[in-house]
Amino acid sequence: MKKAEIKSVISNYKPHVGFFDLSVQPQTLSEEEYAKILNLQNLLAAENKKFSDKRVRENNRSTWERLKILSGELQAIIFQNWNLDDLN
Rank of each mutant, 00 (worst) to 15 (best):
S62Q: 12
D53K: 07
F79H: 13
G72K: 14
E65H: 11
A46M: 12
A46K: 15
G72W: 01
S8H: 14
K7C: 00
L29V: 03
G18I: 06
L84I: 15
V17D: 14
S52M: 08
R61K: 14
K3R: 14
L44H: 08
D86R: 09
V17H: 08
S30H: 07
S11K: 15
L87E: 09
E65R: 12
M1I: 04
Q75L: 14
I37R: 05
K36L: 14
N48F: 05
P15M: 03
F20H: 15
D21I: 03
A35L: 06
D53Q: 03
Y34K: 07
S71I: 00
R57Y: 01
L87P: 14
V17G: 00
A35G: 03
E31A: 05
I77R: 11
F19T: 01
K36E: 15
K68F: 00
S52Q: 13
E31C: 01
F20G: 01
Y34L: 06
I69P: 01
I6A: 01
A76C: 01
N83A: 08
L43S: 07
T28S: 15
K50E: 13
K2F: 08
E31R: 09
L29S: 02
N12F: 03
E65M: 12
L70R: 14
N88E: 14
E58G: 02
K3I: 12
L87T: 05
P26A: 00
P15G: 02
R66G: 05
L84T: 11
D86S: 11
E5F: 07
N39P: 00
A76W: 10
F20I: 00
